[in-house]
């Protein structure tokens, strides 16, 4: 009893009080700064969303966040798209490309990762090194011959150039990610499977793939984001408006309507960011893990 009373008086000594108060003020200022700076950072985004509900003249004159009278006109005008092709078509096209890319990446990258993480074969370190080097390669050194090949195959203005390569594990980052993950799976499981008569193919399918689910989710998310945000290869390979993606649709909108149509453009831009935002909301954990996977261990 005596000691606790002693501690109590100590904790309430003027010096302690002062220290605590100083700490609290410091924390307050940190919070204040982080929130203020965060608002400045996000303001352009929030402003775009709110402007998409404003009448056109207000976008140019008002800094304010809230529209004086909210309207959905920008969305209906924007959605109508250009020359009869609506944004609905652009969204469908993008979702199609993204889905196929995801399937391709999961199958091909997990196969390569299983080989690198678990199987024995000659020249393995050499091949792994090549895989790592391709991670750093600017795609510009391959894009011109690739374009020529796809052009000769008559695949320009089809989705093949954007989807087919994904079935050949061209995105080394995902192989690397899955190799790292698979190396962490206990070997005892495979040994048990082997005793039960599982060969490498069944081990891959029934054991490694299900156990690698977190890495597969990360691959799915990043493929989604990267394909959704991709612009260069879509610009290169798609010039038929019926095949346009959301990114190309927005670009065309910008060219066709120019500065006059900021309202509909903001409306469609906002819509184009919603899928990314949903991924962010529901899979934040995987996103953060995916980003840090290379950074800290490397």
């Amino acid at each position: 009893m005596e000691t606790s009373k002693e501690i109590y008086t100590q904790l309430n000594s003027p010096i302690q009080k002062q220290i605590r108060r100083r700490r609290a003020t410091k924390k307050f200022f940190i919070h204040f700064f982080i929130i203020l700076f965060g608002i400045i950072m996000l303001y352009p985004l929030l402003w775009m969303v709110s402007s998409s509900f404003k009448v056109p003249t207000e976008i140019f004159t008002s800094v304010s966040f809230f529209p004086t009278e909210a309207t959905l006109d920008n969305y209906t005008t924007g959605w109508a798209g250009v020359s009869g092709v609506t944004f609905g078509r652009f969204f469908l096209n993008t979702f199609f490309i993204v889905s196929v890319a995801i399937i391709g990446n999961i199958i091909s990258c997990s196969m390569a990762a299983y080989a690198f993480a678990r199987l024995r074969f000659s020249f393995k370190p050499f091949l792994f090194a090549i895989m790592l080097i391709t991670l750093m390669l600017p795609f510009h050194v391959t894009i011109i011959p690739q374009y020529i090949i796809f052009n000769q195959l008559d695949w320009v203005n089809t989705f093949y150039p954007l989807t087919l390569p994904k079935f050949f594990a061209v995105e080394g980052f995902f192989i690397f990610l899955m190799v790292q993950f698979m190396r962490g799976i206990p070997r005892e499981l495979e040994q048990a499977a082997e005793i039960d008569g599982c060969g490498p193919i069944r081990t891959y399918w029934y054991l490694m793939l299900p156990l690698s689910l977190p890495a597969i989710v990360t691959t799915t998310i990043f493929t989604f984001i990267w394909t959704w945000n991709d612009f260069f290869s879509q610009l290169l390979y798609l010039s038929n408006i019926n095949l346009y993606t959301v990114a190309l649709g927005l670009r065309m909108f910008l060219d066709a309507a120019g500065q006059s149509a900021w309202g509909p453009m903001f409306a469609m831009s906002t819509l184009s960011l919603i899928p990314l935002f949903l991924v962010f909301v529901f899979f934040q954990k995987f996103l953060i893990e995916g980003i840090t996977a290379g950074g800290v261990k490397g």
Binding site: I107, S108, M111, A112, Y114, A115, F116, L119, R120, F121, S122, K124, L127, I130, M131, T134, L137, V141, T142, I143, I144, P145, Q146, I149, P165, F167, F168, A169, V170, I175, G199, P200, I201, Y204
Partner: peptide, 24 residues
């Protein structure tokens, strides 16, 4: 010893030849 490994690597090897090495 190696064939299973190469079997799993087939897509990657084809990909790196067709989309990286040869274009480079």
């Amino acid at each position: 010893k190696s064939w299973v490994g190469y079997l799993f690597l087939t897509p990657w090897i084809l990909g790196i030849l067709a989309f990286t090495m040869i274009p480079m």
